[in-house]
Design a protein around this nucleic acid. Sequence first.
DNA 1: AATACAAAAAATGAATGCAAAATAGCCAGC
DNA 2: GCTGGCTATTTTGCATTCATTTTTTGTATT
Lengths: 250, 250
Amino acid sequence: MKSAIPETGVPITQPAAGNGSDRQEISLHGEVLLRLRDYVVEGNIPEGARVPERQLCEMLGISRTPLREALKVLAAEGLIELLPNRGARVRQLSQRDLAELFDVMAGLESLAGRLACEAITDEEIAAIERLHYEMYGHYLHRDMHGYFQTNQQIHESIVAAARNETLTTTYANFAGRIRRVRYSANFARKRQRWAEAMREHEAILDALRRRAGSELSDILFAHLRNKRSAAIEHLAEGPDSAQEAPPQGS
Amino acid sequence: MKSAIPETGVPITQPAAGNGSDRQEISLHGEVLLRLRDYVVEGNIPEGARVPERQLCEMLGISRTPLREALKVLAAEGLIELLPNRGARVRQLSQRDLAELFDVMAGLESLAGRLACEAITDEEIAAIERLHYEMYGHYLHRDMHGYFQTNQQIHESIVAAARNETLTTTYANFAGRIRRVRYSANFARKRQRWAEAMREHEAILDALRRRAGSELSDILFAHLRNKRSAAIEHLAEGPDSAQEAPPQGS
DNA sequence: AATACAAAAAATGAATGCAAAATAGCCAGC
DNA sequence: GCTGGCTATTTTGCATTCATTTTTTGTATT
């Protein structure tokens, strides 16, 4: 195969001009950045694959200048790697990188929980409770996908309740970095871990109701730590999806 | 005054070529990025000031292309703002932004403490103890500057002991964003707060010795929260250093 | 046949050029 | 005297171009 990235060939439309989205980004560069980030996060480029600029330019229908600007930003965000004179590669996360990322995520959520306890309203808690019961339903029905989504919504709600834009942005950034892995990090076959996670979520909700910041912080950290273990073990055993790039060299 | 940025006119020297530094960045872009970041963090450009690209180009002795790439990255890092078609400005941190940043820093240090307890060696603790006593000396001698520096070293040591590169990088990023403010956020005249901070540091050291992760996490968060309050009150009252840009416009 | 070397092709890094937008400067009008 | 609109200059955004560096391809030699 010649091309590392699949054909999608949807060039960037007219930048702003009354599209329904709330994006205030109107510059071409901003548009490219959003598009490219999504493109990478969604896993359209194999890990570690070299991505010729020209090809991306053609795909997006732009010249190299704004593309290169976007690449530098993505590199700063940690999504891709920029080897000098050797182009951009999708960053390959080692197991250690992953462990680190999970821990930072754990720290951020832990912080979010602590802050949320200071500011969360009864209505917000009620909303999270609803999500919790919805998730419980998914759990009972063994609906992994629904469970996963609702679970994510709960965590995002907690982060939102922290009322800290900076935290929200940072959290989203890190979430993007491990999103690909996260999807495969479920514990479909490990029922025991699943039940455990549900219990942890009960504890989270309980601490949140009591606005017990420090306690919630501990619980969230532990919860994410367990998630981390599950994810890493899962990867170590090798996920069934054989999409991984084979170890090249020798 | 015509020029918003002071004259320093030190163009970028030959990029790599056996300079003593350990930097592996060799590309012009990387060099520019480091230079510009330092330049902004050190406060050489007044907050909110418009910075014409041309001027920066001349200052660094480069063309606009690598400069603009660096600007995009700095904008992504949150150091500057890029208004569409209106150039780059040094980001002006509102009081709320600052509060948010301090809280995120608190969360990161809190995480660092927790992780450090899992991995820190006796030697590292001993080193931190030495720093602690050194800091105590500065406190007794009312040496604000020395105190501040040693204090920072302690916090950095804890972050380092967490053995998480990602965390270290993220921490450094946020530290850079509030560095300017941080310097003026000391409590030179508030002896009471100073004494309080010393007591908190004792508690930090104690929890670290016992490897009490959760406890240390709480203490660090509270400690940084207090620092935040001190800093924000300080700014609200108006820092004596008149280095701030006067409110321009009318 | 395999390896080493060399030249060609392609890709990257940076500079320059050009069009559009914004700022400022200026003059007319109230 | 001040405000509003029009033009000129500056500045930004992006495309194009040029110079290196890397990668590939072909050839010759062992």
